[in-house]
Design a protein around this nucleic acid. Sequence first.
DNA 1: GCCAACGTTGGC
DNA 2: GCCAACGTTGGC
Length: 154
Amino acid sequence: MNYWLIKTEPAEFAFADLLRQPARTECWGGVRNYQARNFLRAMAGGDLAFVYHSSCPEPGVAGVVRIARPAYPDPTALDRHSAYYDPASTAAAPRWVAVDVTWHADLPRFVTLADLRADRALRELIILRRGNRLSVTPLLPAEFHRICWLAGLP
DNA sequence: GCCAACGTTGGC
DNA sequence: GCCAACGTTGGC
C-alpha cells in the first residue's frame, strides 16, 4: 500500500464533485509534468491518496480517494478538443497517463495548508517545500496517518 | 550541452 | 495582481 497526495483546483474539479460522478469515480488526467507523471505510473490499485485543493481561497486537504485503476494512456492528451491536448502524444506512443480515482472517505475536518505547515511531524512534506509545484507526490505512511489524525479520521 | 527567455504554478 | 520558483523551449 502506497500513499499519495494529488492536487486539484476546486473551481475545476473539487473533491465533492466525485460524489456526482458515476460510481463516484473520475479519470485523473491532465498531468503534464514528467516527475508527477512518473508518480502516477507508480500508483497501484488500492493505493490511497489525499485530494488537495490549490489555487483557491482556502488551500488544503479535502478528502481521500482510492486508486481504482492504475495508470493508462491519458485520453485528454489525445483529444484535440481537450485543453490538455498534446500533439506530441499519440495513441501508438502515449506520453502521459491518467489513473481512475474513487471516493474513499470524507474528512471530519478540512485540513488547511496552514495546519500542515504548523505540524512539526509534516516538516518533510513535499508540497510544503519552497517552490514545489508537483501535482502528484508520494507520502510516507507516517505522513498519511498524521494527516488523517489532523482531519479527525479514526 | 549551455543558458537565456518564456510560461506556469500557486500562495499571498 | 504580484512574484518567487521552477520546468521547458530553442538558438547556438
